[in-house]
């Protein structure tokens, strides 16, 4: 059970994530890469800003990775999240999971990103030409 969890303002390094997750024991790796999309519901997005309650966010991500190890036979789990200002096309999040067999890698990876979006104290503000909005803040 190996995990690597990071939250920082530097650009995320995909190759470094892959290098860490690969191992001779594993047969399948699933990697989810979130990217900043140029539009939300058809409205052009200029940039995003991510803010995290770092200590608690690490705490919550650790809970999620532990749940993933409990639920599936996975070998390594990596979660990197970026904060600060991100331009369109940049990468806010990388999740990588290795396992002996691919089913576990796919399922755990999806579980981690789905749960992260629900429970981890990180907030995203979208900047449009005519204003800005904290995503999901209002009904």
């Amino acid at each position: 059970m190996q995990t690597q969890i990071e939250i920082h303002t530097e650009p995320l390094n995909i190759q470094a994530c892959i290098d860490w997750i690969m191992s001779p024991d594993s047969g399948g790796i699933d990697v989810f890469i979130g990217t900043v999309r140029n539009a939300t519901k058809g409205k052009p997005v200029l940039k995003l800003e991510f803010e995290a309650y770092n200590k608690m966010a690490i705490n919550e991500i650790e809970k999620i990775t532990k749940q993933a190890f409990d639920k599936w036979p996975v070998q390594k789990v990596l979660v990197h999240h970026r904060t600060g200002t991100l331009q369109v096309g940049e990468i806010p999040v990388i999740i990588a999971v290795s396992a002996a067999h691919r089913d576990a890698a796919f399922e755990a990876c999806r579980y981690i990103i789905d749960t992260l979006k629900q429970t981890v104290p990180i907030w995203k503000k979208e900047f449009f030409e005519d204003g800005e909005v904290w995503v999901a803040a209002h009904p």
């Binding site: 429970t119 104290p121 904290w134």
Partner: peptide
């Protein structure tokens, strides 16, 4: 103290308390 708290929990002035609006990471 970096954990989601239930409504009934008692707070002391040694606790780290934070307001968590709807999250939107990832």
């Amino acid at each position: 103290n970096n954990e989601y708290a239930e409504d009934g929990g008692v707070i002391t002035d040694r606790d780290e308390v934070a307001i968590i609006p709807p999250v939107s990471g990832g």
